[in-house]
């Protein structure tokens, strides 16, 4: 397993280069040029000269492979370049100031989702077609089908405007600087409550349904039946034998959603005015801010490769019979 993991890690470097190369080409060939005014209202002040100037400044007039080579050589020195947007700030700085809040939100949300989804899934599987099962099924799907913005606005109206218990948007109150340390933390946390509720509600369906479904599969397997036949307590059967095996899809889905932790949800962020990665990326995409897009891509790819590797390794822990990367025809 260790050798397998090492080999995968070694392979990751050329793979990463390949991914960035293909993406680089597609991003640059897609319609649009950096520096277009994004308002949708043209104005008489023409930006033509600016455009030409920027094209030269950013080497956009050079052939694509030259641009890519330059980008890659800089990347080796861990230099992600400067943003094309008029603030011309280093990409790492731009991403760096937005990553923490997105990461915080998503990690908390993910933990809550798992903490809720696993028990919901297990209980509704072991009591299939019970009242509990039916109610939770409808509940999680309601959560899934409810548009984020709708729920967000409803909660904002209720808790922010009507009751006045929670702040509506942003991360900190205006008088934040004047608060004591603990009050500052409390203020910050209260700003995060609504976004986290909204994000959690929407994400609950996925995990709990995977959990329920695979639990249903597992509890009818022979070994579970035999464990039960041996007279083991139901709790031990479910909790120890069945649950572990049923985690397989959860591990996969977790692996798939790990890179998303730094992605940020555009809708939640823009509704709650949270300056996170989602907003940064959307802006970068619309402005064709290639260095920021590529910078993000490198981080996301690294995370994706890592997360999927991690998932593959975890399969072995969940079900010891699984050997990923084993060659065919062993037998």
């Amino acid at each position: 397993m260790l050798r397998y993991a090492l080999r995968r890690l070694l392979l990751a470097v050329p793979l990463l280069i390949g991914i960035t190369f293909v993406s680089f080409i597609v991003i640059h060939l897609a319609p649009g040029t950096p520096g277009e005014v994004q308002t949708g209202d043209l104005s008489i002040q023409s930006d033509r000269d600016v455009q030409k100037l920027l094209m030269e400044l950013y080497d956009l007039d050079k052939p694509l492979h030259v641009q890519y080579a330059k980008w890659l050589t800089r990347l080796v020195r861990f230099d992600f370049g400067r943003s094309f947007s008029p603030d011309a700030r280093p990409v790492l700085q731009k991403i760096g100031e937005r990553l923490p809040i997105t990461l915080l939100l998503n990690v908390v949300e993910m933990l809550i989702i798992i903490a809720l989804a696993v028990p919901i899934g297990v209980l509704s599987a072991t009591r299939q077609y019970s009242m509990f099962d039916k109610v939770t099924t409808v509940f999680v799907f309601v959560g899934f089908a409810t548009p984020d913005f709708w729920l967000a606005l409803l909660l904002m109206i209720l808790f922010g405007v009507q009751l006045g218990w929670l702040p509506i948007s942003g991360l900190r109150s205006l008088n934040w600087e004047y608060l004591s340390f603990w009050r500052q933390q409390g203020d910050f946390a209260s700003h995060l409550v609504l976004p986290i509720i909204v994000a959690t509600f929407g994400g609950l369906a996925g995990f709990s349904r995977y959990m329920r479904q695979s639990m249903l599969e597992v509890i009818r397997q022979d070994y579970v039946q035999s464990a039960r036949a041996k007279g083991l307590a139901e709790r031990v059967v479910i909790g120890k034998h069945a649950l572990r095996n049923a985690m397989l899809p959860i591990v996969t889905v977790l692996g798939l959603s790990l890179p998303g932790l730094i992605g940020g949800s555009v809708i939640v962020e823009s509704i709650f005015a949270i300056p996170g990665m989602g907003q940064l990326m959307v802006q970068a995409v619309f402005e064709r801010d290639y260095p920021v897009i590529m910078g993000n891509l490198v981080i996301v790819s690294t995370l994706t490769l890592g997360a999927n590797l991690l998932a593959d390794v975890t399969y072995g822990l969940v079900d010891p019979r699984i050997r990923v990367g084993a060659r065919r025809g062993r037998r």
Binding site: L153, I168, S169, S270
Partner: peptide
């Protein structure tokens, strides 16, 4: 003068109501 950046028009409106 504080300029708060709130991308959603709907949120701004709620902030108005809540005097934010």
């Amino acid at each position: 003068v504080v300029y708060r950046i709130i991308p959603s028009q709907a949120t701004i409106f709620l902030e108005l109501k809540a005097k934010g």
